[in-house]
Computed example of a mutant assay.
Amino acid sequence: MKKLDSAFYNRADVVKIAKELIGKVLITHFGEVITSGRIVETEAYAGAIDRASHAYNNRRTNRTEVIFQAGGVAYVYLVYGIHQLFNVVTNQKDTPHAILVRALDPIHGINTMLERTGKHRADYTLTKGPGNVSKALGITTRHTGVSLLGDEIYIADDDFVVAKKDIIATPRIGIDYAGEDAKLPYRFILKDNPNVSGKKSQNA
């Protein structure tokens, strides 16, 4: 299993990177506890020109400043005061691109994931949806800014091959406020994977 390096994250095409993350493995290693899952759903956010991005029009706040860092760090933010959402920062410094990881296919540490989420059995809801991804893998807002090149949180390639025909592009979910940008095909899913979030009509 090979950890993705800075060259993977520092590229300019956030949509391409979001697509290439499908099939990669997201891993957390906190103390002696390791959990991981295969990425099966992502969403790209294209920064200053993307009305759905927190950094639209180069908006810089205490929360969004991390997105302006060079690619290869985590951006974790809170929504509805409940869900903590894990994003991968990409591109060069001062170009605020990010990719939301929306769903995983669990691989390692499932019992730990069950404890973290308060679930009693490992059904498809365990890592379906971005809030569940972070909860299951123990990722919180305190991990914002953590390098994905380190050993706590990282993404790796285990030579799992995804056929191009099995990666489906769709509009992103829950961003109606973004106007025409809400229709952009910036969400990628692994075809027929039961862990993918969204309604059936959103996954075709």
Rank of each mutant, 00 (worst) to 15 (best):
L26R: 03
A204G: 13
I155Y: 01
I153H: 02
V76P: 12
L21R: 00
A74T: 02
A44I: 10
D13T: 06
I22V: 07
G31N: 15
T144V: 15
A98R: 01
T170M: 10
K200L: 15
I34Q: 07
Y45I: 01
T95H: 12
L78S: 14
A52F: 07
H120M: 15
H108A: 10
P171A: 12
T125W: 12
G131E: 07
R121V: 11
N91Y: 08
S201E: 08
R172C: 10
Y9D: 00
I189N: 03
P185F: 11
T28M: 06
A122C: 11
E43D: 12
K2V: 02
V33Q: 14
V133Q: 04
F30A: 10
D159T: 10
T140G: 14
A55D: 05
L149K: 02
V101G: 11
T95K: 13
M113K: 00
R59Y: 03
D166E: 05
V89Y: 08
V40H: 00
L26F: 10
F160H: 11
D159C: 14
T127E: 06
A74F: 01
S36I: 04
P171W: 01
H54F: 10
F68I: 01
K135V: 00
L104G: 11
I39S: 00
G179M: 12
V73K: 03
E43L: 09
A70T: 00
E43Y: 13
A74D: 00
R63Q: 11
D50G: 13
I173A: 09
A74S: 10
V88G: 03
K19L: 02
E180W: 12
P130R: 04
A44V: 08
G150K: 07
G118K: 03
N91F: 06
Q84F: 08
P194H: 04
H29I: 12
F188R: 00
K2A: 07
T35K: 02
T95Y: 13
R187C: 05
D157Y: 03
R11Q: 06
A163Q: 10
G118Y: 07
A48Q: 03
R11W: 01
N203C: 09
A204K: 13
I67H: 03
T127V: 14
V40T: 05
H29C: 15
N132C: 12
S36E: 08
I17P: 03
S147Y: 01
A163I: 03
P171Y: 04
K24H: 03
K191W: 04
L114Q: 01
E180V: 14
L184H: 07
D159E: 14
R11C: 10
D181G: 06
A156C: 11
K164L: 08
G174C: 14
L21P: 01
T141A: 15
G37Q: 00
V133G: 06
Q92F: 11
D176M: 04
